[in-house]
């Protein structure tokens, strides 16, 4: 292991700490709810280890409980995760110098906070190395899988999640992430459009389509009101609380 690999890996690891702490309740909650909804401990861990996308895993176990057709469960998880297509396109520009297998690993580890941190680091002009990316991505992944296991094994101990407000942690977490991007250009109109779009989508069509519908409307608003003069630059998530 070279000195610079170690240095960059440790730099990434330092930034993973708040992400690990913030994700921990959700990782545990997922494991607990999965077993609650009839999955085995092994299936819960398999979900965390292979899908590795919290909100979609929650949607998935929600459907496992009912009589939803297998293809519908897969499609719903796909819909919730569709946002990654756009993260992937954005991050791809940042890691174009990675080797093929490094990219393959990096995209597997691409979750919301890793996306935010990658954008922030690139905007700050710091070097984007595979070591740094692994440093932030790998501990988050490993702890997520471990939390899924622990939650599944011990989760039965939480009798009534609503009593502790645990069911509302996830929306609060997503809201705080959105606030972290508030210095970006046209942030408010985009957020308002997405909010209205997702609320209407949820009401008239239903979950999980409100995610894709709201996102498409917000993104369309951003594209329509964009400043198309050629000097326009990417706006960094400066002062992003999401990334601390």
């Amino acid at each position: 292991m070279t000195v610079s690999f170690k240095r960059d890996f440790l730099a990434g690891m330092r930034q993973c700490v708040p992400v690990v702490v913030a994700a921990a309740p959700f990782g545990l909650l997922f494991g607990a709810l999965a077993v609650d909804n009839g999955l085995t401990v092994g299936e819960a861990v398999l979900m965390s280890a292979t899908i590795y996308a919290g909100a979609s895993q929650m949607v998935g176990i929600d459907l496992f409980n009912g009589s939803a057709a297998p293809w519908l469960i897969v499609l719903s998880i796909f819909a919730v995760n569709f946002r990654h297509v756009l993260y992937s396109a954005a991050v791809g520009r940042r890691i174009s110098h990675f080797s093929l297998w490094q990219k393959a690993v990096a995209f597997f580890l691409l979750i919301d906070p890793v996306y935010a941190e990658t954008e922030r680091r690139s905007e700050a002009g710091k070097s984007m190395t595979f070591a740094w990316y692994l440093g932030i991505g790998l501990p988050v992944y490993l702890s997520w899988v471990a939390e899924g296991y622990l939650g599944a094994v011990f989760g039965g101990l939480i009798e009534n999640p609503e009593e502790f407000g645990i069911d509302f942690l996830l929306p609060l977490y997503f809201m705080a992430l959105v606030l972290g991007f508030r210095s970006r250009k046209n942030w408010l109109p985009v957020v308002l459009a997405s909010a209205l779009g997702s609320i209407a989508g949820f009401h008239f069509i239903g979950s999980p389509w409100h995610v894709s519908i709201g996102a498409i409307i917000g993104i369309a608003v951003a594209a329509i009101i964009a400043d198309t003069r050629p000097t326009q630059n990417m706006k960094a998530p400066v002062g992003s609380e999401a990334s601390r």
Binding site: Y87, V178, G214, A222
Partner: peptide, 12 residues
């Protein structure tokens, strides 16, 4: 650039 805010908003 609008992707993260647009998507995450729909989740809350």
């Amino acid at each position: 650039n609008a992707v993260p805010a647009a998507v995450l908003t729909t989740l809350f």
